[in-house]
């Protein structure tokens, strides 16, 4: 389970130091990230019109989607700076969802065997 990572030795340390100090980035960096995300979105839209990508089309879209997803979760939602336990809780749900639903869609493909 995700919970084994709880580190009790840090308990006292956490209580004392200001929680707000580790809240990641300056505003400027957030704006930079937002610009990058906007560019990726532009690339996504471009890719959906670009014929030359061929078979790489869907993989490239998926990769860009994942990059955007991870960027928002990691930085805007501070998951990268925060305690690991938050990551565990969220990723438990996320990976369970991906695993279960991909398996579901796959079983529909196997049906005609």
């Amino acid at each position: 389970m995700s919970t084994e990572t709880v580190d009790h030795t840090t308990e006292a340390g956490h209580a004392e130091h200001d929680e707000h100090a580790d809240h990641g980035w300056s505003d400027g960096k957030y704006i930079q990230l937002a610009v990058i995300l906007a560019v990726i979105t532009g690339l996504e839209v471009y890719a959906s019109y670009a014929d030359w990508l061929g078979p790489a089309f869907i993989p490239s879209l998926i990769i860009m989607m994942v990059v955007k997803f991870v960027a928002v979760v990691m930085f805007f939602m501070h998951l990268k700076f925060d305690n690991k336990i938050f990551s565990w809780l969220f990723y438990a749900g996320l990976f369970l969802a991906v695993g279960v639903y991909v398996a579901l869609l796959v079983t529909f493909q196997f049906f005609n065997r």
Partner: peptide
């Protein structure tokens, strides 16, 4: 207990063995 909780997510289709899933599933 945790293992049951985890593996419990990967066995749902055993309620559907007669429902025509196909032999692989």
């Amino acid at each position: 207990g945790a293992a049951i909780g985890f593996v419990g997510w990967g066995v749902w289709a055993h309620h559907m063995f007669a429902s025509g899933l196909g032999p692989v599933s």
